[in-house]
Write a protein that binds this DNA or RNA. Structure first.
Lengths: 344, 344
DNA sequence: GTGAAAGCGCTAACAG
DNA sequence: CTGTTAGCGCTTTCAC
């Protein structure tokens, strides 16, 4: 009952020709190798008839290409990353690549472990949202001629492909939007800015408040603390100490979650009285009360850009000569109720 | 500069022994094969020294095992599935398996395409959230001796491993909870119940209302319509026609999203006046106003069960003799504000 | 105790 | 135009 899969050899034997010929035909090299039209057709037809599927593992061993891409993010269950993953998946499959997703929790050790698990050669390429301290690993990946493109953040001084958004501009614009809506004491809650995307978000905010004669009021929570659930306490303390805040700008979507939880539990009125903006959109924002203004990243464009950088690299042999592609995309500020002037 | 990876042969040559011996040692068969302690140690040390990593592709070709699992769900960007994926990922990695996630959109053609893409042999096992009409494909997978475990739903009359929740009980309990909170006209909004999980949710609801002398009032939207965005209109019409509803039970989390959107746009007061329960939890529910009651699935238990079924199958040769494992887990009703009696 | 060698299924240089 | 053949890196049977 065990259906033994057909191999290229079966086809060759059945048709009484050599495996080479079959291989050439199947790989679309019939023309190039001057194989007769009839033979080509015969092979193709028979292959289809018996539903031949090449053994990709054998192909991989031979060609050194696995047709597998790794998509490593902070947390695949995070709204932003899972949406991105979903779109990237579709694009990759259309190009004949499978995608392995994994989550590094923004942890260096876990990142290195995962990258080494994929073993530098089992996969054809990487999309990586890098944790803060894996600069060296990325560099050695590049030196080993493995296609990598960084996502969401990058390392200063490392010549590596990347697709990021213009965090500073996005943050600047969102802050200005709040200022235009009469908010004067705008708090900025972020995770510790030891990575480029967070640096940009912070500096955009600072620049905007400064240019408008206001003072920056920031809370920087180390990522680790957020991860282990201490963010709530930190945010609560922040609001206890910083009295008179009339608006708050959260630098990531999970900070919004925590922030709203704090409001909900302590001063529910804040939810309506405060101007609120979230970095990253969430499906729930448009049905929240009030609806929440957000900085929305262009998911489709990001995924497309990733693939456009990656694909050519997957074909090339020597990547070293390539100048890295650094793409910076713009975000969209989706203005909803939460950020509109509360002044009548 | 190209770092050519070390092979088993390099080790053998360096140590002036045969590849066989190296292979035995590396595979932990030193004892079994009576290889001397010293030689064993020498090999192991040298392997570590040069940081030897077996080429998994070659291993796969030889052993027929790829150490890759496929985790196919409806939509990896859906909150429930992405959380599940995240947990499953961790468990699988610990056991030495990589996981490829994919989304079938509950579409038969896409499901079949994906399953066939993975080619019946490149992957060691499948976790599948099956679309309605792929019963035959699943059966042929089983016949071909490929480990499969169905998730979230299954097919009546097919002897296949599965991990599901007790939908009927969950739905029954949630409905009774609403009834206990004085709600009398409870609407049930679901997608067309042509799959087991939806059948269970519907029947649990119907049973509960009937047993309590109430009438079922249901809206069944075909999955396709939801997918193309027609759900909103359907739900709007439902509330226009069914006047006097005092509560609503949504059978999936994306229906809640659509429902809240409808309320928000048309009769915002409903959000507070209506009793609301959602099947599947969402991180945002606890910060919504009101906080939303939900039926929460045990994500960790589900993932663990999946792996516990899968692992032994991955080792066995002949699966046919195995009696399938069918696991049914219980959900938890997380009671929040939205479902509490509105009667003072 | 250890090694030689076959071969997993495929590709592609080389030969005719 | 088509076929022979040598591996890709590894596991495992069989022989010594």
């Amino acid at each position: 009952m065990k259906k033994k899969p057909v191999s290229i050899r079966n086809i060759a034997e059945e048709l009484k020709i050599s495996v080479t010929t079959v291989s050439f035909v199947l790989n679309g090299k019939a023309k190039e190798k001057h194989i007769s039209k009839e033979l080509t057709k015969k092979v193709l037809e028979y292959a289809k008839l018996i539903n031949y599927r090449p053994n990709q593992i054998a192909q991989s061993l031979r060609t050194g290409k696995s047709k597998i891409l790794v998509f490593m993010v902070e947390d695949i269950s995070n709204h932003f990353f899972s949406k991105l993953a979903r779109i990237f998946e579709d694009i990759a499959y259309k190009k004949g690549y499978k995608v392995i997703f994994c989550s590094n929790e923004n942890d260096d050790e876990k990142s290195n472990e995962l990258i080494s698990l994929f073993n530098f050669r089992q996969v054809d390429g990487f999309v990586i949202v890098p944790s803060p301290g894996i600069k060296d690993t990325i560099e050695s990946l590049i030196k080993d001629n493995i296609p990598v493109v960084l996502l969401d953040r990058f390392f200063e001084g490392v010549d590596c492909n990347s697709v990021v958004i213009d965090n500073e501009k996005a943050s600047f614009d969102a802050t200005v939007h709040l200022i235009n809506n009469q908010f004067k004491k705008i708090g900025f809650i972020t995770i510790a800015p030891n990575q480029t995307q967070m640096k940009g978000r912070l500096s955009g905010y600072v620049k905007a408040v400064n240019e408008n004669g206001l003072n920056p009021i920031t809370l920087e929570i180390p990522y680790d603390e957020v991860y282990v659930g201490k963010g709530k306490e930190r945010i609560k303390n922040f609001f206890d100490e910083e009295t008179g805040l009339d608006a708050v700008f959260f630098a990531t979507n999970y900070l919004v979650q925590i922030g709203l939880e704090v409001f909900k539990e302590n001063k529910p009125s804040l939810i309506n009285d405060l101007g609120i903006v979230s970095f990253d959109d969430n499906d729930m924002y448009k049905i929240y009360s009030p609806t929440i203004t957000s900085v929305s990243q262009p998911l489709v464009e990001i995924s497309t850009a990733l693939m456009e950088i990656l694909l050519p690299l997957l074909k090339k042999k020597d990547l070293i000569t390539e100048a890295p592609h650094k793409i910076m995309l713009n975000t969209e500020l989706i203005i909803r109720e939460s950020s509109l002037s509360k002044v009548m």
